[in-house]
Write a protein that binds this DNA or RNA. Sequence first.
DNA 1: GATGTATATTGACGAATGTCGATACACTAG
DNA 2: CTAGTGTATCGACATTCGTCAATATACATC
Lengths: 116, 116
Amino acid sequence: MARRTPLQPATTASKGCCGSLTDSALTTDDAESMAHAFAALADPIRLRLLSLIATSSSGEVCACDLVEPSGKSQPTVSHHLKVLREAGLVEADKRGIWMWYRAVPDRIAEVRDVLG
Amino acid sequence: MARRTPLQPATTASKGCCGSLTDSALTTDDAESMAHAFAALADPIRLRLLSLIATSSSGEVCACDLVEPSGKSQPTVSHHLKVLREAGLVEADKRGIWMWYRAVPDRIAEVRDVLG
DNA sequence: GATGTATATTGACGAATGTCGATACACTAG
DNA sequence: CTAGTGTATCGACATTCGTCAATATACATC
């Protein structure tokens, strides 16, 4: 083994959040944390839920309005919304009986910036 | 069910590739295809491999130089590189005994643009 | 209180995923 | 052709994930 180019030191002390993939090699820790964020986006239902929430004209969407367009059961939708929330991509608060979900643009931008 | 805002039609005929999450709701098909791309990024080893490849000064990296910094076995690294290749994030060609991997900036940008 | 509705949690299941050892394949050097 | 090296594939395994029915929780209304 051990061939050509030496490769970057891979010890990029994270600036801000993590810096871009194309700037300097991710550390093991940064890769771990970012992979978790990407994992939340790695499901078509969650991507669709996030896009429905992010494109809502009012800025927020009632969970009750996400079940039908997703084509999944209510518990499944609730599960996916939890994953999105744990990834920081959406936030929610309860008003009356309803849960209102909003996108978190800063977090989405943070994830986007990792890709350059 | 069926509460407040009507929500977008969710029938965004994909322009270019798919348009942004925050512009208009993804169609089921677009979400499917994009989720596949994000899934390739949803693993710390793969993120690290991609960053090592993308930040290489020469623009390409021999697979033999990716095994050791990843801390995984050679078959495992080969498997992850295959996933990255199938997602279109990297490309490779064999020269002699060695496989040389390059990042695919256009594809990476395509994935990035989905996030806004 | 009791009833109804919206959401979250639990439990269980099959499917997909990450991992490695063993092995096969491809190419080079002798 | 034989031996050696780099890479990919295969087989097996434990773990994680997506899903739903059933149930629990929270809130509003009566």
